[in-house]
Nucleic acid binder design. Sequence first.
DNA 1: ATTGAATAGTGCAAATTTGCCCTAATATAA
DNA 2: TTATATTAGGGCAAATTTGCACTATTCAAT
Lengths: 74, 74
Amino acid sequence: MGYYRNDKFLKQFGNHLREIRLGKKLSQEELAFRSELDLTQIGRIERGVTNTSVSLANKIAKALKIPVKDLFDF
Amino acid sequence: MGYYRNDKFLKQFGNHLREIRLGKKLSQEELAFRSELDLTQIGRIERGVTNTSVSLANKIAKALKIPVKDLFDF
DNA sequence: ATTGAATAGTGCAAATTTGCCCTAATATAA
DNA sequence: TTATATTAGGGCAAATTTGCACTATTCAAT
């Protein structure tokens, strides 16, 4: 399996998340704490090396205090 | 693990997807074919019993010819 | 009521993600 | 530079997702 992964999309998603996070002046560690994810996972998502789930995207959006759909608006 | 899953969100996501799919008069099978996912998986997502990935959400959105963010707009 | 289409659901192996441990590399201040 | 904070990344076990094969149930139309 694994052929359902779209690396370009994941990179864009990660870069977009990073921009939003930096725009809010948050460190990965602070975002990890607020979203109750591991710091490692936040990094992996931003680098586009993991294909995270819609649930975690939702948790991250909540931690950033933005609508989930904004995470996908790029 | 597994405590990062938000069932309410997954149900909403699935219901929203279903509404969009039906609005386009597509069967799960047709959507599965267009998105290159398995029919079983489309059903699981709509029922909210699986926490799918952002990549698959993207493939589904493409198959529906809508922006990904619209899948998260509910 | 019957037929056929569509959806629900079960079970399994393989692939992938995730948290947690850790160290390395890079950026930011002082 | 030196120290400090931040990010990158390796490695592993456990959890989860996914496709595939299959049967059961529900829906729609005639």
